[in-house]
Design a protein around this nucleic acid. Structure first.
Length: 112
DNA sequence: ACCTTGACATTGG
DNA sequence: GCCAATGCCAAGG
């Protein structure tokens, strides 16, 4: 598996409960600017045992990106609401919940 | 190697 | 805020 996935998984795993991030934001933090779509792929391929908080990752507009009708979509909504994140019409207010990590801490966390 | 697909982002109307 | 057009790029056929 490419080390890009590893980096994405690592960053995604650091999103605190009650917060959300966009695919693009995770890509940026993983040192992969412009590759938001790779984040979605990496999440789909992530081993279950990593227990990544995939539900905290949304489109940049705050909309849930999982297609309607999918079972995972409702699961994402449920998980967010369990963390007291308000979801209205399949959307979360990025303004209120966006993760704003301390970049220095992040570097330590990622072993750079 | 070529073409299509997508759990994306940005821009312009 | 919604939508369409564009750009993007790894995966899978």
């Amino acid at each position: 598996m490419s080390n890009h996935y590893q980096r994405i998984w690592k960053v995604a795993g650091l999103i605190p409960q009650g917060c959300v991030a966009s695919y693009g934001q995770i890509a940026d933090l993983a040192g992969l600017p412009g590759r938001a779509r790779m984040v979605s792929m990496a999440l789909k391929k992530a081993p279950d045992e990593l227990e990544l908080p995939w539900h905290r990752i949304l489109s940049s507009s705050g909309k849930i990106s999982i297609p309607a009708g999918s079972e995972a979509r409702q699961e994402q909504i449920n998980r967010l609401q369990e963390e007291d994140v308000v979801v209205l019409s399949g959307r979360v207010s990025m303004k209120q919940y966006r993760w704003q990590p301390d970049l220095v801490d992040l570097l330590f966390q990622l072993d750079y």
